[in-house]
Amino acid sequence: MSTAAAEAPAADGVAARARGLTKAYGAGETAVLALDSVDVDIARGRFTAVMGPSGSGKSTLMHCLAGLDTVSAGQVWLGGTEITGLRERELTRLRRDRIGFMFQSFNLIPTLNAAENITLPMDIAGKKPDEKWLNQVIDTLGLRDRLGHRPTQLSGGQQQRVACARALVSRPELIFADEPTGNLDSRAGLEVLGFLREAVDQLGQTVVMVTHDPGAAAHSDLVLFLADGRIVDRMEGPTADAVLERMKRFDVGRGSAGPEED
């Protein structure tokens, strides 16, 4: 892993990259470092999970990588594009065209039906979705008979599947999923994780998922562990038990777990 910040990264095999990524809240003595000079590469075509105790900075890392939040120092690239320093309008376009999002809850626009929600980013961009791909996504997620439904008429799991379809449909370079199973029961959660897995394995997508559930993290290819704004560990081919064990060590180290925030 190279540490030269100014060096243009090779785009090949890396979907997103951060160098010296620092995010501070507040100023002066009271400043809190949410991210402390993080270097990270997100490999293309893989399912990466970001874990860590509350307040470790895992959500902030995702927000900074996705161009949702500004950074205090350091650089972030999406593919070959440096996004730090981009203006608001360019960031918006970047999010629209090159990134897919799934959030924990409130993923869908309540006034639009499932089909309209799925194509919304492309509609906003004024682009026609690729019909073949769209159909493939819809069928993969089993949403064919739900397309005309409004979000209120869908179950929580179905809503997350629609959100997943929306994230996939524009074939983004990167899909960010922020606690996508946080509000679901275990069966619906498993289903959604299965789809994310499928998106990576069969559709060749790149997924970054923030979670605090070791079971969810076990579906990923690689788990990055954050603590106090730094990447402290990584685990290839994780299992739920191994992740849980690793997480327990954080709790011991800290004395006790703080209240859940993200």
Binding site: L68, T92, R95, R96, D97, F101, F106, I124
Partner: peptide, 16 residues
């Protein structure tokens, strides 16, 4: 608010 946040996150421009 959340809906607007979501729209902005998935790429709705301020002008839109």
């Amino acid at each position: 608010t959340r809906e607007i946040g979501l729209l902005r996150a998935i790429g709705l421009a301020r002008r839109q």
